[in-house]
Design a protein around this nucleic acid. Structure first.
Lengths: 82, 82
DNA sequence: GGCGATTTGTACGTATGTATT
DNA sequence: CAATACATACGTACAAATCGC
């Protein structure tokens, strides 16, 4: 994807891992208020295409965000900002 | 993984190879009746974690078992005892 | 209730890079 | 150098849940 390995800040360790960079990017958009609670994210397949990564990589990224409590995913519905 | 290099018997040549030891272990469980025909094995990724080896190593092990006719693998479904 | 479209969930298949032997 | 093994990522197939019609 297009994100650079580092732009001054270090949002997370393992920033060299693609799925971590994706997770950090989405987390930053939530923190900035660009994505507000209740908002539904695009489908995981769309996100994969958007970031230019594989579906499995998005799965890993969203798993991180779920574990951080930032999002919630419902089978058959979608992924929501909390 | 936990299997010892040898316990008296030599189920296979190259028992020092990790993927062969995994293949032998699964083959032994089939031979013993612990795994019966039609049974679905755990996913290859799960097996990798279970044995404490890399995914590619499980791929090698299951390839051996497929070639022996002991298991059958279906893309997107799973691996079954024959 | 059925049916199709959308979406998440799970699983196999392949490629690449690094390290070790 | 070649084979083994690890780790990550990309790609594809199949399955299940939800929703609107």
């Amino acid at each position: 994807m297009l994100l650079m390995p580092s732009d001054l800040a270090a949002p997370d360790d393992n920033a060299e891992l693609v799925y971590m960079r994706v997770a950090d990017d989405i987390a930053a958009r939530i923190a900035s208020g660009e994505l507000t609670p209740g908002t539904r994210l695009r489908s995981e397949r769309d996100l994969a295409e958007h970031y230019g990564v594989a579906y499995g990589t998005i799965r890993r990224a969203t798993k991180v965000l779920r574990e951080r409590g930032l999002i919630e995913t419902i089978h058959g519905r979608g992924t929501y900002v909390r």
